[in-house]
Amino acid sequence: MTDKGGDSGEELNPHIPQFIGVAPWYISDGTTSLAHQRARNVEIPKTLSDKKWYPRGKDAEGQQSFKYRKGACTNCGAMGHTTKDCTERPRKVGAKFSGVDIRKDDVIADEKELALDYDSKRDTYNGYVPEFYNQTLKFYEKTEEERKRRRLMNLKGNEDEEGEDGVRVDESKTDNSAVASVDPRTRTAIRNLRIREDTPKYLYNLDVNSAYYDPKSRAMPESPFANMEGVIMKSKLTEG
């Protein structure tokens, strides 16, 4: 069985739950219908773009004052802002004491004319002019052009440093085994005095009473051939 939907005369599905078919108490007219579920004819508020905004870069119309007035900015002499909020360059002698170059008053917008609601007052992009972003784009375009120019200069400089055969040496593939470590504070490289393939000095003579090898400093000040008859081996070691 179906019910009539109040004044609209539409039939309601009997399987519709009660919390959907019954209107809230603040808009209920005592009948069961789905009228409260549909959009009502409510005036759509104006968008932020349709509303006015505070004037930019304009001065108040009228005759300009040539004398300092009480309550004006002590720096530029204009009415509408204080010295703390003044955007002009701080003068050595303010307009309050010099009386020279009194600026025009600021334009004070009428809040009733703007008619800003709760959201528009707190919208960070309200009154934003998209043309202002073109200045930011031009700045980054110039930065990109300068980066490309410097990169091209570096490539030309690397081509000039190539050898006569036109073969560039890759420093990352060169043998750096002779360099043990580099100290960035002193700009000096600590070099190994022995190649890894060579036999270490302390392995030539395995006698316990031979020359002492200090493992901490990796030093053997005495000769390992002192108690050996290997003078020929010693000469070969020194010559190599």
Rank of each mutant, 00 (worst) to 15 (best):
K51S: 01
K52H: 03
W53M: 11
W53I: 11
P55M: 10
P55D: 06
D59M: 10
Q63T: 10
Q64I: 08
Q64L: 05
Q64Y: 00
K67S: 15
R69C: 11
K70C: 08
G71K: 13
A72C: 14
C73H: 06
T74L: 00
C76R: 04
A78P: 00
A78N: 04
M79L: 12
M79W: 01
M79C: 06
H81S: 14
H81Y: 02
T83K: 07
D85A: 01
C86R: 06
R89Y: 02
R91I: 04
K92R: 01
K92Q: 13
V93P: 10
V93I: 14
V93F: 09
K96C: 10
S98F: 03
S98R: 03
G99M: 06
G99F: 01
G99Y: 00
V100N: 07
V100H: 11
D101S: 10
R103E: 00
R103M: 03
R103G: 01
I108K: 15
I108H: 10
D110I: 14
L114C: 09
L114I: 10
L114P: 00
L114Y: 05
A115F: 14
L116Q: 13
L116A: 13
Y118Q: 13
D119L: 15
D119Q: 15
D119P: 01
K121C: 15
K121A: 13
R122N: 15
D123G: 02
